[in-house]
Design a protein around this nucleic acid. Structure first.
Length: 544
RNA sequence: GGCCCAUUGGUGAAAUGGUUAACACAUAGCCCUCUCAAGGCUACAUUCAUGGGUUCGAAUCCCAUAUGGGUCACCA
């Protein structure tokens, strides 16, 4: 059989692969720089699962001074989504992923959408035919069904191989006849594998894995002229000079086939890292994150609830390498970008998404920021999801920052909130605009008691210029004057001897000023509220 | 069903043949304290899915079983 002739017959117009090999030369990168890619199908929005799957290559590429590529795998025309590319791109950008090459950014190694690479695939398909490693198959869907049935009945391996691969033996004339007839064909790999023999390869995460060799004559080019995943990924990753392929671990079982393809071409193989999916515990069942069943996993959910982008990434970093957490504890001022991640520290068994852990990480993250930084993040969130609040805090920007700064600039700052959507609940009472139609709950204290305390405090004690010690000494003095214990220890030893304690007194003032019985430091709150607001609010209580 | 992978506390996990199985989250209690939020301290796996073996010694190596996951397309 003259394979060259067959190749010309099948793909008369395809270019020589030399053309593409020259067009996409080796990258000029420093030693050790990784080229990694995220290669999703544009079938929907990104969720926590694939956001993590894209976090990994992004981090490995950039920590090594390499390149991160977004490539769109849209060879399955049935499932693609209108503007799916843009959606994925936007989602990744929301999380500040640095994308070096993509359909939207362009790049020297494009196009980055597979359906736009049809010509390239054709050239490489032709090449494989010309060296005798691929052949056209004219079997119909019915033929294949019949074959499968027969194999099932005989309990034989299912698929197109060996004696079942009848189009392997088509002569040049047979092929010509089919072509003249206008018959559609798929291109198949002429596999040389033996399933009784082992194929061993080393995965960056899982280590050595043994699988049977591939012997299936898999489809390389579909009848519509577009390749399925395997062929496309080999050509793309070769031409884009990917150094490490990260992908879902469901591809593991087809690795022998993929490797046979790489070898058939004679290309230098990249390293492979098969990622375990992030799972979720649903009752007793552990399953992959699902877009439909897990609304909390959607990026839009995180967006609406104001879950900080950075917190999600810190959480991903702890999933990626569990020793990251300890490192961050030792280096609280550093970014995850400064940590050296490795594949061998990755989990081999898939982890559960833990919202509580994310919450904790987020609290810690926000507590370390400056008040002005929290303000900006909050403002950006509120602009989209709480316009009234956005207007309010921006009208009183400096004031809001002071509020956000309460007990922040200290060794162990407060950790009140994890998400932007929670902040309003913690600070609303600081704004007169929101301090309307309020209801007070003074607990066991009678309203006369409350008025007595508030009155006396305003009349004899309150001075907006007091420093913290003076302020508190006055609260104590007020307590003494009214028969409340100013010393908590004394009170605890003899609770019957007093009307209450300084805790009760300050709490009455606290509720009068904020309606809340639990707030941050009262002195700071009064300080920021300022004299006018304090007096106004205390008077309101007096007029109840 | 064949093949592949995994299995350490409520959760994420460390440990890669050698003392009491790190650490973090969650939970509970105590301390501190004007309330919170923090912070400090303490408790929480007689045991690493189960059973057998190898070894002076096993969570770590081997075998079987169980459970969970993946994969067997002109889908990725």
């Amino acid at each position: 059989m003259d394979y060259k002739k067959l190749a010309d017959l099948l793909y008369p117009n395809a270019k020589d692969i030399e053309y593409y090999e020259k067009k996409y030369p080796e990258r000029n990168l420093k030693e050790g720089a990784e080229v990694c890619r995220f290669a999703p199908s544009p079938t929907g929005r990104v969720h926590m699962g694939n956001l993590f799957a894209s976090f990994v290559p992004e981090v490995f590429a950039h920590q090594s001074g390499g390149v991160f590529i977004l490539r769109i795998e849209d060879t399955d025309q049935v499932r693609i989504l209108e503007n799916g590319v843009q959606l994925i791109y936007d989602d990744l950008k929301t999380y500040d992923y640095q994308i070096d090459e993509s359909p939207l950014d362009g790049g020297e190694y494009g196009p980055y959408v597979q359906t736009e690479r049809k010509e390239i695939y054709e050239a490489y398909a032709k090449y494989l035919v010309s060296i005798g490693r691929a052949y056209p198959c004219f079997c119909s869907a019915e033929d294949l069904d019949a074959m499968r049935k027969r194999q099932e009945e005989r309990k034989e391996q299912i698929g197109y191989y060996g004696k079942y691969a009848k189009c392997r033996n088509l002569s040049l004339d047979d092929v010509k006849k089919h072509l003249d007839n206008g018959d559609k064909f798929v291109l198949r790999l002429k596999s040389m594998g033996d399933p009784d023999k082992k194929f061993v390869f080393k995965d960056l995460i899982k280590g050595a894995i043994e699988l049977p060799q591939n012997n299936l004559d898999q489809v390389l080019i579909k009848s519509d002229g577009i390749p399925p995943y395997a062929f496309a990924h080999v050509v793309d990753d070769h031409l884009m000079h990917t150094t490490t392929v990260t992908r879902d671990d469901s591809y593991i079982s087809s690795v022998p086939y993929h490797m046979e393809l790489w070898d058939a071409f004679g290309f230098k193989k990249p390293k492979f890292a098969h990622l375990l999916p992030i799972n979720i515990k649903d009752g007793d069942i552990i399953r992959k994150i699902s877009k439909r069943k897990d609304p909390w996993a959607a990026i839009s959910y995180h967006h609406e609830n104001g879950i900080p982008v950075e917190a999600v990434k810190l959480y991903f970093a702890t999933l990626l390498n569990s020793n990251f957490e300890g490192w961050l504890l030792q280096n609280p001022d550093k970014s995850y970008r400064d940590f050296k991640f490795t594949f061998d520290k990755m989990s081999k068994s898939g982890s559960l998404f833990d919202m509580e852990k994310l919450t904790n990480i987020s609290k810690n993250y926000l507590s370390k920021l400056k008040a002005s930084e929290v303000f900006e993040l909050l403002s950006t969130w509120a602009e989209e999801f709480d316009k009234d609040f956005y207007d309010l805090i921006n009208n009183y920007k400096d004031y809001t920052i002071r509020v956000l700064n309460i007990e922040r600039e200290q060794k162990k700052p407060r950790k009140d909130f994890a998400f932007y959507s929670e902040i309003k609940n913690h600070i609303w009472y600081m704004f007169d605009e929101l301090f309307t139609d309020v209801e007070y709950d003074f607990g066991v204290n009678t309203i006369d008691n409350v008025k007595e305390i508030v009155n006396l405090y305003v009349k004899n004690y309150y001075n907006a210029d007091d420093d913290k010690d003076t302020w508190f000494n006055k609260i104590k003095a007020l307590s003494d004057e009214l028969g409340y214990a100013s010393d908590m220890k004394a009170y605890r030893e003899n609770p019957e001897g007093y009307k209450g304690s300084v805790a009760d007194v300050s709490n009455i003032i606290r509720v009068a000023l904020t309606t809340k019985s639990m707030t941050p430091d009262l002195y700071e709150i009064m300080n920021i509220l300022g004299k006018d607001r304090v007096l106004d609010r205390l008077n309101r209580v007096n007029n109840l």
